[in-house]
Design a protein around this nucleic acid. Sequence first.
DNA 1: GTTGTAAGATAGTGCCGGTATCCACCTCTC
DNA 2: GAGAGGTGGATACCGGCACTATCTTACAAC
Lengths: 214, 214
Amino acid sequence: MLVSELAERADVPLATVKYYLREGLLPAGETTGPRRAEYDDEHLRRLRVLRLLREVGGVPVTSLRQVADALDDESLAVHDVMTVIADVITAVPTIASDSGSLEMVDQVLAAVGWDGVRPESTDRLRLAELVSLLEGPGSIGPDVDVLLFYAGLADQLARAEVARVDDSTERSLLLEQMITGTVVYGRVFELMRQLGHEHHHRVRMDRTTPVVAR
Amino acid sequence: MLVSELAERADVPLATVKYYLREGLLPAGETTGPRRAEYDDEHLRRLRVLRLLREVGGVPVTSLRQVADALDDESLAVHDVMTVIADVITAVPTIASDSGSLEMVDQVLAAVGWDGVRPESTDRLRLAELVSLLEGPGSIGPDVDVLLFYAGLADQLARAEVARVDDSTERSLLLEQMITGTVVYGRVFELMRQLGHEHHHRVRMDRTTPVVAR
DNA sequence: GTTGTAAGATAGTGCCGGTATCCACCTCTC
DNA sequence: GAGAGGTGGATACCGGCACTATCTTACAAC
């Protein structure tokens, strides 16, 4: 297919596809002439994944390059590509964190037995930042028990999600499915949590406050 | 305290505080003279909450105005303010959703018994959008059972979080704590999920692929 | 041939979230 | 009571980001 068709099939403006090509996020098509190039399904899938990361995951375009590079690097194991994705999804301006918070995080990680986490993981560092944020005056202090509760649930979630991947799938397809899953289901869970708040909150209100009219 | 002190204590640039005042996100201080105004702890807490929503929650400044208005409106019950917060946190450009997806979402909501969710909830609508996104060709189709699994975990989380709020606290303080909790612990859980992926992923790799060197 | 569209390069746009500057004036210190 | 420095208030400006528009050259299908 030609660029225009690629753009149309992915439902992305042509100008944007050209921009991504310029930025090297999308591998160039196979040149079939001085002013002609062919694109295939692989390009289409790549484009879809990038847009998903961008639009649903909120990943900035500059970080997408890291993603593209990792996907293109055949020497990287699927697992290693996913750590790149993990780091990139976690792109929020840095806050200061103290060593005590990091210690607390590590304590929690140890408690749930997550020894497979890289010490340089962005997620681990960001988590410590958040914990130190909670330590500020007048806020709900971070409690190891509370964090452990979260970690326990997250463990169930992550365990089930990892178990759901089918390693017999071809590398590039597998990666795309995993990325989509991470991003989209992450958002799904987030939304469900908020819906849960809304429900349980209302239930509690109805029980607590006297109902005036119904 | 004077503005400069307010800015310093919240660790926000003075120019930004002035900007927030201009935008009406922060109520004006009490004027004590033609070129003098006093700010109190309430202002400080408000500022901190706004910055948290902005920096950790990624809420755009325009939406912060809705938050500020809701917080200032004493006629709104705590619960109603929280629905405003819920809608505002869920600020991602819209994707098209089909009616089938919405039906699926409602089916899941009914299954977990969340009848306290407003039909117009932004979260409910966004969830339907995501579900229809998953329905696209070549992706991991949305499965009611999978969604139910997420909903079940989210229910545990939301239930525990709502149970943790102490209604005897003064309204404005309570709201601030709840907002902080929603935003920060949401992010905490997200990070923990990713850390869980990293760990379980590595474990699975180590088991699956023959270890060459150690 | 004529027309339409491709590729490729370069320049421009719109929004967002602040910053910077200016001014008239107040207040604190010495 | 004089001077330094900070204040509230207004307006103008800025940098980054993610595109978007335009232009040129050339080929391809009719």
